[in-house]
């Protein structure tokens, strides 16, 4: 019988696919940004459905709360009147691109169906092994034992990106000639 979790999955899946498509199709980039936010939130809840609560929180904070804010802010920076005109829906007609992605999608779905759907072991969602706090702690310990190098690399990367972004923004010819 359709349990609450299944119903939940289908609702969230529908939301994320619907608003995912909206991101691609929306004429006004601001609308696509907003639909991106909604997709992020639904993906966060999907993580929740998979009992990865800490990741759901992080997704909300990082993606929904920071990255998309940046997108919206940058979009507000550009005057979108011009953007609207160059909307590239016209290019949608470009058949090859569609065919390629269609074939890929078809292949992916068939592949997944052939390997996982028929696999009984993956069918029912196994019960959550540990409490979500315990799961988060396992995540943290493994982050600091197995992936310590990656962790340090990420630190260095973020530093570099920070420096890079600032210097990039410093390039002359600012938006307002006054404050360039």
């Amino acid at each position: 019988m359709l349990t609450s979790t299944d119903f939940l999955f289908y609702v969230l899946a529908f939301i994320s696919v619907f608003f995912g498509a909206a991101v691609v199709i929306a004429r006004n980039p601001i609308y696509s940004a907003m639909s991106l936010v909604i997709t992020m939130i639904s993906v966060a809840f999907l993580f929740g459905a998979l009992d990865a609560w800490f990741l759901a929180g992080v997704q909300l904070i990082v993606y929904a709360g920071a990255v998309t804010v940046l997108f919206v802010m940058v979009l507000m920076l550009f005057d979108l009147k011009h953007e609207m005109k160059t909307f590239s829906k016209g290019l949608l007609g470009n058949g090859v691109k569609l065919i390629a992605s269609g074939v890929t999608l078809g292949m992916l779905l068939v592949y997944i169906w052939s390997t996982y759907a028929t696999e009984p072991t993956f069918k029912p969602l196994p019960p959550a092994a540990t409490s979500s706090i315990k799961a988060t702690k396992d995540l943290a310990t493994s982050l600091f034992t197995d992936y310590i190098f990656a962790f340090e690399a990420i630190g260095a990367l973020l530093l570099i990106i920070a420096v890079g972004a600032v210097t990039l923004s410093r390039i002359t010819g600012g938006t307002h000639h006054a404050d360039s």
Partner: peptide, 20 residues
């Protein structure tokens, strides 16, 4: 750039097709 993206997609499609 978008043509490049297209070629990548095409490549993926073809390889997936061949593999599967």
């Amino acid at each position: 750039l978008q043509q490049y993206a297209m070629y990548i997609a095409l490549g993926v499609a073809v390889t997936m097709f061949l593999i599967l």
